Simulated scan of single mutants.
Amino acid sequence: MDTRNRRNARARARGAVRPVTVAVLAVLALLAIAAWFLIIQPHQQLVMQDAGGHPSSPVSAGRAAAPPANVEAMDLNQLLSEARKAMNEQRLLAPAGNNAYEFYLKALEKQPGNSVATDALRETFPFAATSAEQTINQRDFNEAQRQIDLLAKADPANYTLTILRSKLDAQRKLLDKEQQLALDQQKQAQLAAQKAANDKVEADKLAEQQKAQLAAQQKAEQARAEQQRLQAQQQATAAANPAQDTAAVGASSPAILIKNVLPRYPTQAKRANQEGWVDVEYTITVEGDVSDVKVTGSQPRHVFEREATDAVERWKFKPAMRDGTPVASRGQKRILFKLKE
């Protein structure tokens, strides 16, 4: 009888315990499910290493980030939800106002010490730092500075920030150096182009001078040839008319210098101990004056030419005679410039 009563009591006790156990198990299952969706699953997604799942992988080009939300108006759960969404879309630090770090930092402002936000920031810091480094390498310096400042709010003592700041400073200096080098190269190219243009102008000027001198020489040679032709014609006429009056024959004569003016020695040439000569051609008018003085050669050039032509223009001649009549004629002379011993 007692044994039967004890069995019944035990059965009633077990029947009473079973509902409590089921309730406890149900609560634990709900907590496990909540922990999976709120903590474990986001963290696992952040540390995925397979293709396309790494947090540092860029967002696909076809996915456009949502515009910044009104962060100030969100409660804690909304901030964590937006942060998880940004994590899944690889928006760790960018764009500004719509990235995981800003959502998590705002969540910590609303609830300091929140484990979800704290753990997420700590575990994703290396990947976010890599993203900031990529921005530095792309030379988007203002954006890189913003991302570094955002990382500093999450973990101000992390040594990685020092490295990122050093890289940012180095890239800025490198860009400044490249820009200065490009500017210097552009300036050198401009100077070279200007020099080439100046050289061309000088070459054209020299060519014109040489052309003018050649024309003057050709004209002088033509004048000499004409004079020689006239003299030969006169000689032929005299030979063909032996009975010509001797007085008429004697009436033809070349021009004779009757007033010689010595050229002035240039002061600069005298100081430099320069000597040289100038070849000139000129016309002797029927009055015996000199005109149309031209330089046909000189050594050295452009040193004695002005003084030589000034002196020759002041010479005075007895004009050439032909058949007893004064005629114009051409003359030539080499003017020597020598320093006295």
Score class of each variant (00 low, 15 high):
18 R>P: 00
130 T>Q: 10
176 D>M: 07
257 L>R: 09
23 A>N: 02
206 L>T: 06
216 A>H: 01
185 Q>M: 09
191 L>H: 04
104 Y>F: 15
64 A>K: 13
237 T>G: 06
95 P>D: 03
83 A>D: 00
327 V>F: 01
142 N>K: 14
155 D>T: 13
169 D>L: 09
167 K>W: 00
29 A>C: 15
1 M>G: 13
304 F>N: 07
138 Q>F: 02
85 K>T: 14
210 Q>V: 08
260 N>G: 04
226 E>I: 05
182 A>Q: 12
44 Q>E: 09
160 T>E: 15
323 D>N: 15
317 F>S: 05
37 F>E: 05
264 R>A: 15
163 I>W: 08
286 V>G: 03
72 E>L: 04
116 V>G: 03
64 A>Y: 03
292 D>M: 06
12 R>D: 12
265 Y>K: 05
6 R>T: 09
40 I>T: 08
242 P>W: 09
255 A>S: 13
237 T>F: 11
141 F>P: 04
36 W>P: 04
55 P>A: 15
77 N>G: 04
241 N>A: 11
207 A>I: 01
113 G>Y: 10
131 S>D: 13
218 Q>K: 12
259 K>C: 05
204 D>C: 00
218 Q>N: 13
81 S>W: 03
60 S>G: 09
109 E>S: 13
35 A>L: 10
267 T>I: 08
287 E>S: 15
52 G>P: 02
287 E>T: 15
75 D>F: 00
68 P>K: 03
101 Y>L: 08
163 I>H: 09
298 S>P: 06
180 Q>L: 05
92 L>M: 05
10 R>T: 06
110 K>Q: 15
45 Q>Y: 01
80 L>C: 01
85 K>P: 00
243 A>F: 06
101 Y>I: 08
184 D>A: 12
296 T>V: 12
218 Q>L: 12
221 E>N: 13
319 P>S: 02
314 R>G: 01
301 R>A: 15
102 E>P: 03
47 V>Y: 03
290 V>N: 06
159 Y>M: 07
249 V>S: 06
115 S>W: 13
308 A>F: 01
258 I>V: 15
336 L>I: 08
214 L>G: 06
152 A>K: 11
123 E>V: 13
295 V>A: 05
288 G>E: 08
304 F>Q: 05
62 G>H: 07
171 Q>K: 11
13 A>I: 11
338 K>A: 06
336 L>M: 08
312 V>K: 03
213 Q>W: 11
7 R>K: 13
121 L>N: 07
226 E>N: 14
235 Q>S: 10
219 K>V: 05
152 A>T: 10
112 P>I: 13
174 L>R: 08
104 Y>Q: 06
132 A>F: 08
137 N>L: 11
